[in-house]
Nucleic acid binder design. Structure first.
Lengths: 337, 337
DNA sequence: CTGAAAGCGCTTACAG
DNA sequence: CTGAAAGCGCTTACAG
């Protein structure tokens, strides 16, 4: 049997109220009784029951984090940032992998709400109308990661994907590239997809390059997905000198496939990723990419969430755009136009 | 105000007991009243308060997982395996990064216990006597990941590190190597370190190769740690043809440094990692390593933990050794002896 | 400064 | 089949 507050009260010859006061460091306790209680706590090995406490004070000090897949290094970093901030403010994280599956997301949200999470961070590449409604409705506070909420009810932390894609494309165009392929997600629509596509189109337009949907390939955004998209691209006979991959894993897979098919990277094909995952500088060739401050996204989102959960915290709804950065590395090269 | 059980009781004209029964799917409820309650639940949008429930039934259906750093791909996979199993059995995970810091570990354990986690998975490279005592003492159930408990009180899931190191070393010796360097952890002692060292020594002994502590370098086990150990190794002028790194990140860092210093990998130096992280086949050269089934370690540990948390579950204490596998890849080569 | 008592939102013997 | 009531382990007005 775990020892409870009444046991230490008995031991210290005081009421449970008094024990509670010293446990919670409420001042008005006589120094001497406090000592006595502290001793009783040590002697009995008492540990407060946070569940009981939560029920009473209506606050759990636990946050939920819904993330597609913690195994994706991009999301891993976000979780780490969030967890570190949690630690500082004495919160804990319940982690939930959603795999971009709307059913899982719903179930997950439901459980997090039932477990009375003070707040929830929702990370994804898109916010469906349904999820948006559920999140706005949820009794827990909510902050979005990587996506914005257009309703004005939810705050979010993200990069400007359109600008990022635009800048990346512009760099490659400056290097002489005109014929592009895009290795995108299976998922047809989605906020991030749309934004980046806008960015690419803008850059293309400004340089009188035709944006052609047939130059978009779709697959799982993974090493093997990138590999097979490259295989398809080369086999298709389409003429291209540069490919934009939706993330770095995909880019690396594409690089490996191209090499195996006898292409030199970057001499024959320039390949770009996105996100700047932790290993991007350590591959050969190094991966040209757009860095996102993933850790900061998690950390900032969690800070905002905690503010929402504390009285007198800042409740301004806003989208925080964190800086991105284009890194030109060995996987791309200038070409003669 | 969140709607509570009494609200739906009122709405359905029944007692809270009845509502509770239908929510928990307890049979003895009249079909008709059940319908009425279900409707009231839908109408009011009632969601049970899991905290209140937990307090009453003395079970939270949440598990704690203490892991050094979720950002390390090795640990990431373990967490994913654990979380997936949790999902199946309707548990949730509270994630806690401990960074190999005994203070953080203690605090973390404490919080997990206070939050009444039904069970806790402790993952690390070593189990200090102090931690061991605390874990055995903890009112939550505990299963270890990657390390065993020699007291016979705690179950664990892990590979046989000694055998793994032995097999890896034997392979390299067969390839003609005799002069080794070892790139190990800053942390001097520790279970996994000791086991692997034993394995290396055994292989060396069997082949009349002297094991010399001066051939062990110590640094952070990271890309840059590997890089700087290789720098030091080469600059030291010590003669070696093969290096064993404690993990794959370290190996990759070492490979990059060696290349930059004009060495050809694997022709001039053979380099091995450990763990077979997800990208090991996609680097160039590909990394020779020992695969651990990380996902399974997490999944099996969680299964065992859940059994411990359910009545009539299997309470046998045991260490489950999962299979490892040596993968010889492009980062190593035969040499003429 | 301290304690008695109500109440947080549930579940579950117990009685009917 | 259903309900009244006790109790899970805390916190916190309220009274003294």
């Amino acid at each position: 049997m775990r020892v409870k507050i009444v046991d230490v009260a008995r031991e210290a010859n005081v009421s449970v109220a008094t024990v509670s006061r010293v446990v919670n460091n409420i001042p008005l306790v006589n120094e001497e009784t406090k000592e006595r209680v502290l001793e009783a706590i040590k002697k009995t090995g008492y540990k407060p029951n946070a569940i009981a406490r939560s029920l009473k004070i209506q606050k759990t000090n636990t946050m939920g984090i819904m993330i597609p897949d913690i195994t994706n290094p991009y999301y891993t970093e976000i979780v780490r940032g969030a967890e570190d901030v949690c630690g500082i403010y004495h919160y804990n994280i319940i982690l939930s992998n959603t795999d971009f599956d709307p059913e899982k997301e719903k179930k997950s949200l439901n459980v997090l709400v039932e477990k009375q999470c003070d707040g929830i961070i929702y990370v994804g590449k898109d916010l469906s109308a349904e999820m948006q409604a559920e999140l706005i409705d949820a009794p827990s506070e909510v902050v979005l990661g990587c996506i914005p909420d257009d309703s004005g009810f939810l705050s979010g932390v993200l990069i400007n994907n359109e600008a990022a894609a635009y800048e990346l494309a512009t760099e490659l165009i400056k290097m002489g590239h005109k014929k592009f392929m895009l290795f995108f997600d299976e998922l047809e629509e989605g906020y991030i997809y749309q934004e980046r596509k806008k960015g690419f189109i803008k850059a293309f337009d400004e340089n009188n390059i035709q944006f052609d949907d047939s130059r978009i390939l779709r697959e799982k955004l993974s090493l093997s997905g990138g590999y097979s998209m490259m295989e398809e691209a080369i086999n298709s006979g389409v003429d291209f000198t540069c490919v934009f991959c939706f993330n770095d894993q995909t880019a690396l897979g594409a690089i490996r496939c191209a090499e195996e098919m006898g292409k030199k990277i970057p001499e024959d094909i320039s390949i770009c990723g996105f996100n700047n995952f932790w290993i991007a500088e350590w591959t050969r060739p190094q991966i040209t990419t757009v860095a996102q401050p993933m850790y900061d996204i998690g950390a900032i989102a969690m800070r905002m969430l905690i503010k929402l959960c504390e009285k007198d915290g800042d409740r301004t709804v806003k989208n925080v755009y964190v800086p991105h950065e284009v890194h030109i590395r060995g996987s791309v090269a200038k070409i003669d136009s």
